[in-house]
Design a protein around this nucleic acid. Sequence first.
DNA 1: CCCAAACCGGAACGACCCCTCCGCTCCGGT
DNA 2: ACCGGAGCGGAGGGGTCGTTCCGGTTTGGG
Lengths: 218, 218
Amino acid sequence: MALSNAQPTLRRDAARNRDKIVAAAREAFADHGVDVGVDVIANQAGVGVGTLYRRFPTKESLIDAIIDELFEQVSGLAQDSLDAQPPETGFAAYLRGVGQLQVDHVGCLSRLWTHTGHVEARKELESTVRQLLGRAQDAGLVRSDVVYQDISVILWSLRGVVETTAPVAPTQWQRYLDLVLAGLRPSDQPLSRPALTGAQVDRVFALHRDRARGARGS
Amino acid sequence: MALSNAQPTLRRDAARNRDKIVAAAREAFADHGVDVGVDVIANQAGVGVGTLYRRFPTKESLIDAIIDELFEQVSGLAQDSLDAQPPETGFAAYLRGVGQLQVDHVGCLSRLWTHTGHVEARKELESTVRQLLGRAQDAGLVRSDVVYQDISVILWSLRGVVETTAPVAPTQWQRYLDLVLAGLRPSDQPLSRPALTGAQVDRVFALHRDRARGARGS
DNA sequence: CCCAAACCGGAACGACCCCTCCGCTCCGGT
DNA sequence: ACCGGAGCGGAGGGGTCGTTCCGGTTTGGG
């Protein structure tokens, strides 16, 4: 977001090709996972790999571009859920929306929640989701000992369901989410463990980001 | 299993090395995921890769050996939960046990629930878990419209939580599981979608098994 | 219309990883 | 103790995939 004048002007064909590459990558990642060869993406975009590498210095940077898009969709969804939904339904609407976005991007999910770029935007998303959660709790729909970090965990669990079932039953995650939402309703039975701390969530992000960059050693 | 006389007798050093390889693989997979190089495993076992390949004709077969172990632990756990637990707690005990087993085997989880070998044993496990679920429902702890396939989905979601949080907070999955168990309790609010069918679950298995064998195409 | 700069394609390079091969070692029955 | 053969190690073959390089092509301002 802070970038403003990276390319003063991009030649028209180059801009067109850039868009084709991003679209092809989005589709290829969704269909075959982030491990597809760059040649597949270039083919689907109708360009050579050289062209791809002119615009994106590394495959990783191309993935980042796709994840940036996705992250902004999640942010927009959170904001919409806060603005356009009554307090009682905003929280569930957000979770369901994220579920659908995950379905549309199976294959890059491993990178979505490890995306530590844009600390600014992350803070903003967190603030929005905290408000959604707070309203749901005020409305008596969610038990009060649930905290923001639990939402992260739930989205990680949702990822597990989506990644596994989406190709066979693209809506099955909704049934699962119904169960989770039921589990979030107020209850007098305490939870056996404390929630993750914010620092722990950050460490999860950092760890999986490193792992994505192809680590091996000790 | 069905195998009886594959190796009439294995030389003592060879048997010792086989055990060292399996132990090293178990640890290496848990620490670095199934993508560790075979040389890492061989090193850790204190043998050469040639030795490893004498015993396991393929890296995949080594993974299978580890998954076989794990699968049997799950089966044993289900049986124990049925035999040694009161009807009210067996079901939860099974889920918690599977959670712990998943923590101990992060890194091969992608292969566990895609493991289609031993159709026999799978049927038996299914039957046991159905009984656990039925007892929990009879005891009024689980809503009656939950079916066996939902348990598969829940374990897939648990995998998502375990894989993400285990390295940072190895017990966090327990809090998540508390929420899910709460969500399973009887409720008059219907679920929005029907459960997966048995055939769909089978297709999920088949799909992910193929994907594990390094697919690419169309 | 013309030309320099930007852009394009895809062959080739290098790093990585699974697996094989073969000369040597060590077990264990006689 | 001896010897046949199972077992061992690790260098290297073969294949894949990310990235680079460069000769030819396209763009768009003067």
